[in-house]
Every structure is written in structure tokens, then in C-alpha cells.
Design a protein around this nucleic acid. Structure first.
Length: 811
RNA sequence: GAGGGAGUAGCGAAGUGGUCAAACGCGCGGGACUCAAAAUCCCGUCUCUUCUGAGUUCGGGGGUUCGAAUCCUCCCUCCCUCACCA
């Protein structure tokens, strides 16, 4: 730790106050100005306040917003809170505080802290998702989806914690235990609400390629959606057609059994009387393990008693129920080809089922042959390359009308039901006569009841007054849906609401949205690569289909900041006691110093380890800036400064644009070093302040004022720079003559020179005027290209030639 | 198992075909200032050196090229994500 003798906090408070008073970051639509929408991912306000990761995230976005403001853009940079969700409810259960109270406190805390960072937020656009004015529109979108058949109910398995009497998300049920109380998780089947995101699977998949997102994130999204082309083939079982999905129709002659998922809804139709007991025993065993555990289990199964007919060769093969087939992917049943699929292979080995090879290749005692090869044992298809056979066999089966080409996705519909209080109520009323009925739009929002009891399951369910509701259809007595929505619903469209946050007539004014959207730069952690970033794309596409918006991708450019760990490289956590508090740090070193440090260690997408020595380095820099401006006198710019300044402004501008802030800090330091060495003009100093301003907004604002300027530096125009010309190309001959003469002078002192050999880089040879160079010297001059291997002695040294600096020999 | 990313000086980290022994920061060494220290500033920090250069480097091997840290290929190591998706 280093003492900080300079009192930055006074300067910080002064400028934060002025920015707020003059409302300089509040924005309105302005058709004359180009817009830019910078957004950091929605934060969950927790009682513990902001941590270093938040600060890093905000700093990255804020630097960018400031840069864009100074470049003349109308910048929308809003902030809001994703306030509904589990943590508030957990706190309520634990401490007895009402979630609303907890949330409001947390938000107040967050706001205070964020304001201390001097961020360019337009605070008038604040969103709090726990506010009925906001979640009313969650409900509105839900109703639209319900109307279009995109919101529907089905029974599905959930992770259930018997001790907390609640449903757990997959993340909360890792290792098969509840992450709060460690009780073993059970599987329970409940009727739940789903959003039909799979209707958009293909578009979601295909449009990933168009996005300017990190490659890794794009790959993850594609994997998650998982598009695969294959063939659906009907197998006959007990006189009925049962389709299966396969990507390997070429192996159909090698099918020796079938496996139906143990969770298949129609499993019992396949089970014969004799086998019923065995199957039930098997299911019972499976029922006690979670899905996660099943993944680690050995492949197991049980014979159902039924046989399937292979449509390719008429062979009768047994149908088994198995633990390794996913019920809701494909048809929930597979044709098993143990010779060429590792899972089927293991299963067949275990139960002694025949392994029939149909593709040439070597099957080892432990591994199936899953590579390519030629078909064997496949009748008329023998000898075909298996890749070609896929198409041929599919065509053959299609002709027989028992197959079709299909595309399957691994993406599942989005289950949004949560048996929780602190979420958006699902606007549905159940009526004995009419079933599930939508709450009419005029009755929105369905508000959460204020009075609730925690600790006895879902507080909505135990609230008898709230549940009672008239059926909107028949007027009879009904009951409200007590499930609330997944919080990811709230963050799926909030970026739209920021464009028109106080609209009480509509979800938003399409005109406003079409001015600001899509989001030009979206910044947040990579952990949202699969869930949030898919959901908000889905919502966007749905709203576009409703005709409310004109774009189909919400965030064409996404940036992930890296993780900040402690000095040893370990993750910061309360329990380890290694948390570096951003606010303490800022109080000690100053906000600008901290901002500078956060972006000066590594490029922001990489993350880094915290270092007190490192931030001392940033402090040296900010202090030097302050001292320089209070001491240095104005002078005249040297030509060196002018060209360097130009060059630095150019590259710093590019660095900001590409978020390579670290490079910018290096070049800013270089410029400061230069200014320190020789006097520079006031203009140069001002330019320096301007280009430093996005990273260090407070001190630069102060110094700007001290230089006698009025108004805000934050709103000043970004300095221009002249394109640095590549003069090398224009004066290539001159350069070479100059370079060679210089060396010649030295050499002539030692020896007499009769011949000069010049080796230039290949691409230069056609560009230079050889005559001109030859005339410049009284000696005989020979010019070669480095690629002329068989010309005069291209010894190793010749290869030292670089553009503008040829290799030279004298004789 | 599948996919993604990374390996550069004591450490962090730039550099993505030529001007690279490699910016910048930290650390370390020396110096200035000081009675002294802290802070600050200057110089140095791969090896050798006649201080002007020379040599060996960018996980390892092979290749392309006049020229490779940078392109291709194989291998090794590490990190992350999804994992029974037929």
C-alpha cells in the first residue's frame, strides 16, 4: 500500500456533482445526431454492494461511452436493476426481511456506490424489475406468447429440495444436492409453463455467424442450440410405427437392438406383462438419482419384452429401456448399432447382445469403430463409402415411405415456471370450467401480494386471499397461477424498456426504440453466453414478429470482460477473505487511478490478478499528470512532438474503438514522457487531456478548468488527427540512397570501395528506380532482390534486408 | 468425448510476415536528492562486449518464405465451456 498525498476525492465529488446538476448525461432522441447505445449487463443488486467485477464492467462501458460522447454521438448509457430473483427471497427467509425491503435497500446502496464512480449513466431511465410498472410488461409479453401458442404448459421433471420445499434450478442442484441446505435433490414431476424458444431454433442458430461476438461465445451458442441433420426412420414394433432419429443411416444394417429412454412418455406401451416387474424395478432405481448423476453412471437397461423390425432387412431386434437415451431429444428412442457407436457398444457388451459390423474398420475389445469406412454386410450397399451411403440409404428408405430427412436441435423449450414468490406472477387464472385462462390485458399487472409468509413453501400458494380470482371467461370462481417467471425473463427485453422507461400506455414507443436500438455495444461476463444471450435474442425475434421492432438481433456486438482475481491468482471470495473492495481502493487511490489501473494491466477481455504494486504504478501516473499540469509552462511544439502527437491521437482513437484500453494507457504515458522532456504548446496539453479523459474523467476535467477553460471537458470534441502518410513508399529511392550513403561513409574510412551491392526486399524491387540509385553513387552499383538466389553471394547477411533498409555489401 | 482459448524476459503483458532483444507496468540492481528513510527522478535489467556492436531467443519438432514469435503441420502442457443429443 502506498500513501496517497493527493486528495482526489475533493475533485471527484466536485465534478460528479456538476455533471449531475447540469444533467449532461441525460439524453433524448435527436434525429440530427448519430446515436450510440452502450449497455453493461443488468446487475443483481445485492446487500453486499458492488464488487471489483462490477467496477471493471462499468469502467469498460463508461470509458467507451465517454469516448463516443466526445466523438459527437448521442449516447444512451442507462442503468437498471434485475431485482427479482432468488437472493432477495433467500435473504427474506434467512433474516425475515421482506424481499422488497431487502431489494430497495440494496438498490439504494448500489446507486450510491455507482454514483461515486462518476459514471455517465442517464439516471432518469433507471429500471427496477421488481416494480409492477416494469413486470407488467413481462406479463404482457407472456400473454402475447400465450395468444400465439408460444407459451404452453407441460409436465416436466424438476429438481426438488424436500427440506426447502422448493424447486431448484439446475445450477442450484449441482452434485445432486441443494446448494443451500445440502439435502439430496429429488426429481418431481410438475405441470409447468414453457416458452417455445425452439420455434426460433434455426434462426437463432444460423444468425450466430453474423454477430460480432467473441468466437468462443458464438461457438458456445451454436453448441447449445445444437443443430444436426439426420434421418427419421420408422421401425415397426407390435404392429405400430415408432420413429427414431439417427445421423448414421449408413449403419442401419448393423442394428441389433433398440433403446427407448426410461423417461419416454409411452414407454409402458412397449412393456409386456412378463417384463413389467423388471422394468418397474429399473425405473424405481433410476428415479432416485438425478439427471447429473445418471450421466456418470454405467449404461444400463432392461428388456421391455417387445421386438422391433428393422425396415432395412426385416430383422427382429429386442427393444430395451435404457438410462442413456435422452427422452426429449429426437424421438426418445434410438436404433442401436453397437459396432459403430461407443454407447451402444458398452451396452451390448454388458448384456451380451450381438455386435454386427457393417463398416470396415477395426473394432477393439473396448471400442466401437466410429470412423469412416466402406460398407460391409449391407446387401446392395456393400462397398460404398459410408459418407455416400448415408444419402443413398436415406433415399432408399424415403422411397419406401418409411423415412424422412429431418433437422434436430438440442435446444429445449424454456421452462419459466418457478415456485417462488419474488418473481413476475404468471398472468393466468385457472377455472374448473374453462381451464387455464389468460388475465385480460386491462387487468395487468397482476401484482405480487405485499403480505406473505416465508418458510412454508411457495408463499403465493399459501396466500388464500391472493389466489382467489374470477374467471375472466365465465365469471366463475377460479384460482391464480402461483408460479412466477424465471428472472431471465426480465433481462430478456430490458434493453428495449430503457428507450422508453416510463411509458404506462405501452411496453415502449416503437419510434423511440427504433432510434436507439439495437444495442451497439453490450458488455458483460462470459457466463451468460448460453442462457441470457439466447433468451434475449429469442425475445427480440418474437417482438419483431409482433411488428413492434424492426431488428432481429438485440446486441450485434458483445464484449466480455475478464475475471479479476486476488494477488495470488485465486478467485476473490468472502469466505477466503481475499476480497479487494473497490470502494476502499477508490477512496485510497482515487477513482481515476483505479479506473486507470483496471484497464492498464491487461486487455479488458483477459482479466488479471489484483496487485497493490500495480495500482501504485497507476497512482504514479495520475499524480504525475497532476504535477505536470501545475508546473509545466507553455512553449512551442517541436516537430517531433507534433508528429508524435498526431500518431498517438490516431492510435489511441483506434484503441478506444476496439476496447484495447491498455494500449491507450501506454501511449498516453509515452506522450506524457515526451511532454515532460521539452516544452509543448497549450493546444498539445489540451489534446492530451482530451484523450486521457475517458479513462480519467475527474482529474482531466479539473485540469481542463484550471487551464482556464469553461464548460465540460467531457463534452468537448475529440481531437482530430492527420492521417500519417506512409512516406516510405513515396520516397523509397531517396530512402535507400540516404541509407546506403550513410553506411558508405563509414566504410570508406576503412577501405576503398569500388562496387556496391544492394539487396532489397522482393516487393521493393519493382517499385524502385534503379537508374536513379545508380546515378547517386560514383561507384558501380548492383541491385538485387533477396529472392534472386543464384545471383551474387546472397550470404546469410543478405537476409537482414528489411523494407527501407536494404542489405549492403562493398568491394 | 466434443468445442473454444492460451503457452513470449524473474512476473504480468504487447507484438499476428520484415525496421524485434521484444513496447508498457511490476519486481530487481545502480545512481541523484536526503543526516537517513519514504516518496520522487535518472540509468540499467537474455549472453558476451573494445559500449560500438555481435550472438542465442518467443512451449517442442518439421515445413512454407529472400525473411517467421507471427502462416501451415504434427506433438506436448495449461485454462475454460458443454458433456450419454443418437
Amino acid at each position: 500500500m502506498v500513501d496517497n498525498p493527493m486528495d482526489f476525492s475533493k475533485i471527484e465529488k466536485k465534478w460528479q456533482k456538476r455533471w449531475e446538476e447540469k444533467k449532461i448525461f441525460e439524453v433524448k432522441e435527436d434525429s440530427k445526431k448519430k446515436k450510440y447505445y452502450v449497455l453493461e449487463m443488468f446487475a443483481y443488486p445485492s446487500a453486499t454492494g458492488i464488487h471489483m467485477g462490477h467496477s471493471f464492467n462499468y469502467t469498460i462501458g463508461d470509458i467507451f461511452a465517454r469516448f463516443k460522447i466526445m466523438n459527437g454521438f448521442n449516447v444512451l448509457h442507462p442503468v437498471g436493476y434485475d431485482a427479482l430473483g432468488l437472493p432477495a427471497e433467500n435473504a427474506a427467509i434467512k433474516d425475515g426481511t421482506h424481499p422488497e425491503e431487502y431489494t430497495n435497500k440494496s438498490i439504494q446502496n448500489f446507486m450510491k456506490q455507482q454514483k461515486g464512480l462518476g459514471l455517465t449513466y442517464d439516471w432518469t431511465r433507471l429500471i427496477n424489475t421488481a416494480n409492477p410498472d416494469y413486470y407488467k410488461w413481462d406479463q404482457w409479453i407472456f400473454l402475447k406468447m400465450f395468444e400465439k401458442g408460444l407459451a404452453y404448459q407441460k409436465t416436466s421433471a424438476v429438481n426438488w429440495c424436500p427440506s426447502c420445499a422448493t424447486v431448484l434450478a439446475n445450477e442450484q442442484a449441482q452434485d445432486g444436492t441443494c446448494d443451500r441446505c445440502d439435502s439430496p435433490v429429488e426429481i418431481k414431476h410438475l405441470k409447468q409453463w414453457f416458452l417455445k424458444i425452439t420455434d426460433y431454433a434455426d434462426e437463432l442458430y444460423e444468425e450466430v455467424d453474423k454477430l460480432d461476438w467473441p468466437d468462443k461465445t458464438k461457438a458456445m451458442q451454436k453448441n447449445w442450440i445444437g443443430k444436426s441433420h439426420g434421418t427419421e426412420i420408422d421401425f415397426e414394433i407390435n404392429g405400430e410405427k415408432w420413429p427414431i432419429f439417427t445421423t448414421r443411416p449408413d449403419t442401419i444394417f448393423g442394428v441389433t437392438f433398440m433403446v427407448v429412454s426410461a423417461q419416454h412418455t409411452k414407454l409402458m406401451e412397449l412393456v409386456t406383462k412378463e417384463q413389467k416387474k423388471d422394468v418397474e424395478k429399473f425405473l424405481k432405481k433410476l428415479g432416485s438419482v438425478s439427471e447429473k448423476e445418471q450421466a456418470d453412471m454405467e449404461k444400463e437397461g432392461v428388456f421391455t419384452g417387445s421386438y422391433a423390425t428393422n425396415p432395412a432387412n426385416g430383422a427382429k431386434v429386442p427393444v430395451c429401456a435404457g438410462n442413456f437415451v435422452v427422452a426429449d431429444y429426437g424421438a426418445g428412442m434410438v436404433m442401436a448399432v453397437p459396432a459403430h457407436d461407443q454407447r451402444d457398444f458398452e451396452f451390448a457388451k454388458k448384456y451380451g447382445i450381438e455386435i454386427k459390423q457393417v463398416i470396415s474398420g477395426k473394432i477393439s475389445p473396448t471400442r466401437a469403430w466410429t470412423d469412416s469406412g466402406k460398407l460391409i454386410n449391407s446387401k446392395e450397399f456393400d462397398g460404398l463409402e459410408n459418407e455416400k451411403a448415408k444419402a443413398k440409404i436415406t433415399d432408399w428408405l424415403i422411397k419406401k415411405k418409411i423415412a424422412k430427412r429431418v433437422v434436430n436441435f438440442r435446444l429445449r423449450d424454456w421452462g419459466i415456471s418457478r415456485q417462488r414468490y419474488w418473481g413476475t406472477p404468471i398472468p393466468i387464472i385457472y377455472c374448473d370450467k374453462c381451464g387455464a385462462v389468460a388475465v385480460p390485458e386491462k387487468d395487468l399487472p397482476v401484482e405480487l401480494p405485499k403480505k406473505v409468509k416465508f418458510g412454508e413453501g411457495n408463499p403465493l400458494e399459501t396466500n388464500k386471499d391472493w389466489i382467489k380470482a374470477k374467471c375472466p371467461n365465465c365469471g366463475g370462481m377460479g384460482r391464480r397461477e402461483t408460479d412466477t417467471m424465471d428472472t431471465f425473463v426480465n433481462s430478456s427485453w430490458y434493453f428495449l424498456r430503457f428507450c422508453d422507461p416510463h411509458n404506462d400506455k405501452a411496453i415502449f414507443d416503437p419510434k423511440k426504440v427504433s432510434y436507439w436500438c439495437p444495442v451497439d455495444l453490450y458488455i458483460g461476463g462470459a457466463e451468460h453466453a448460453c442462457m441470457h444471450l439466447i433468451y434475449h435474442r429469442f425475445y427480440t425475434k418474437f417482438l419483431a414478429d409482433l411488428g413492434l421492432i424492426k431488428f432481429r438481433e438485440p446486441t450485434p456486438r458483445v464484449f466480455h470482460q475478464g475475471m479479476i482475481n486476488d494477488e495470488k491468482g485465486e478467485k476473490m471470495s468472502k469466505s477466503k477473505g481475499n476480497v479487494v473492495e473497490p470502494l476502499e481502493t477508490m477512496a485510497t487511490y482515487g477513482v481515476d487511478t483505479t479506473r486507470h489501473f483496471l484497464v492498464s494491466v491487461a486487455s479488458p477481455d483477459k482479466g488479471f490478478n489484483w496487485s497493490y504494486n500495480g495500482i501504485a504504478g497507476s497512482l504514479r501516473f495520475t499524480r504525475r499528470v497532476m504535477e505536470y499540469f501545475s508546473n509545466a509552462k507553455d512553449g512551442k511544439d517541436s516537430p517531433e512532438i507534433i508528429s508524435k502527437l498526431n500518431q498517438i491521437i490516431k492510435s489511441v482513437t483506434e484503441d478506444y474503438e476496439t476496447l484495447q484500453y491498455r494500449k491507450a494507457t501506454i501511449e498516453l504515458k509515452e506522450l506524457l514522457d515526451l511532454m515532460d522532456k521539452s516544452p509543448v504548446s497549450k493546444d498539445t496539453k489540451e489534446k492530451f487531456l482530451k484523450i486521457l479523459s475517458p479513462i480519467c474523467p475527474h482529474i482531466t476535467e479539473e485540469l481542463w478548468e484550471k487551464m482556464g477553460n469553461k464548460g465540460f471537458l467531457s463534452l468537448e470534441k475529440w481531437p482530430d488527427y492527420k492521417e500519417v502518410k506512409q512516406k516510405e513508399k513515396a520516397n523509397i529511392d531517396e530512402n535507400i540512397i540516404g541509407y546506403v550513403s550513410e553506411i558508405l561513409k563509414k566504410v570508406e574510412q576503412k577501405q576503398e570501395v569500388k562496387k556496391i551491392f544492394i539487396y532489397v526486399v522482393p516487393f521493393e524491387l519493382p517499385l524502385i528506380k534503379q537508374d536513379k540509385i545508380k546515378k547517386a553513387f560514383k561507384q558501380e552499383v548492383k541491385i538485387f532482390s533477396l529472392s534472386d538466389k543464384n545471383k551474387y553471394d546472397p550470404s546469410e547477411r543478405a537476409s537482414r534486408a528489411v523494407p527501407g533498409k536494404p542489405a549492403v555489401y562493398f568491394e
